[in-house]
């Protein structure tokens, strides 16, 4: 089985995230970047399927700036077999529709094609949470999203989809796309051996031309939507803070009454 995992490098949420004042895109210089937490789980899910199905190959695919090699290294150290990285200055500022179209083309460059595409259900940076379904739509394959559980058996894939609205069981024939949620598994830590092995694993770095994408299909200038302004909101400042002296609850009640909140 061939599994493609879509991974994304995102700003570390423990560091302050900033928007670039000039074009409203993410200011990547200003923040530390990491492999998105949910993507680690998508990689883990792929590795578990690989362990259960002999002859499975796991390819991680990412579209993003040069720094995304760190995310790739992490996934390879965990145990993925190879990587494809689309990196091109022209990609800067691509909107979700462009990103999905480019990812679909990029997936098409993976040797041997795919039986299963795995992704995170949403990335912590944009929270678009739509890219996996959009990619599936372009590829014309079923999307089984927000999976808390995934099983592959006899050419079909089944998931337990968990969202705020409830639990749904979905099934589809392969090839298909599955996005996983944060409850699916605990990602493994790369072992020392894994980290060493990762250094020798193949990483194909592609330009737009290599991936067969025309520059007019991507980038800020061609995006289907444009951020026209962005402003930091003045941070909420601390108000009153008191020490409980046995009347803390009553004091809150008095505050709520004064603010006409009760």
């Amino acid at each position: 089985m061939n599994i493609v995992v879509l991974i994304k490098q995102v700003p570390d949420t423990y560091s302050e995230r900033k928007l670039d004042g000039s074009d409203g895109t993410l200011d990547r210089e200003a923040t530390d970047s990491v492999l998105d937490e949910i993507n680690e789980r998508a990689v883990e899910a792929a590795l578990q399927l690989k362990e259960a199905n002999d002859g499975t190959e796991v390819t991680v695919v990412t579209m993003g700036p040069d720094g995304a090699t760190d995310a790739i290294r992490k996934a390879l150290s965990m145990g993925a077999d190879k990587a494809v990285h689309l990196s091109d200055a022209a990609l800067h500022g691509s909107c979700a529709v462009q990103t999905s179209k480019a990812l679909a083309k990029l997936i098409g460059t993976v040797d041997g094609g795919f039986d299963l595409v795995l992704a995170g259900n949403e990335a912590s940076d944009g929270r678009a949470g739509a890219v996996p379904a959009m990619v599936a739509d372009i590829l014309g394959v079923p999307a089984l999203t927000h999976a808390r559980e995934v099983t592959v058996e006899g050419g079909s894939v089944s998931v337990t989809r968990e969202t705020d609205d409830g639990v749904t069981k979905l099934t589809a024939e392969l090839p298909a796309l599955v996005s996983v949620n944060e409850k699916i598994n605990e990602p493994r830590y790369p072992s020392f051996k894994g980290i060493m092995a990762a250094k020798k694993k193949p990483v194909a770095t592609l330009s737009l031309a290599d991936a067969g994408i025309d520059a007019s299909e991507v980038g800020l200038a061609n995006a289907l939507s444009t951020v026209t302004s962005s402003q930091p909101k003045p941070p909420k400042s601390a108000g009153e803070k008191i020490e409980d002296e046995g009347d803390g609850g009553a004091k809150i009640a008095a505050y709520l009454v004064a603010q006409k909140l009760v």
Binding site: A136, L139, V141, P142, A143, G166, T168, L170
Partner: peptide
Amino acid sequence: AGRSATVTARE
């Protein structure tokens, strides 16, 4: 337009 996933149960 393409293939879809099928819902087998809903809670």
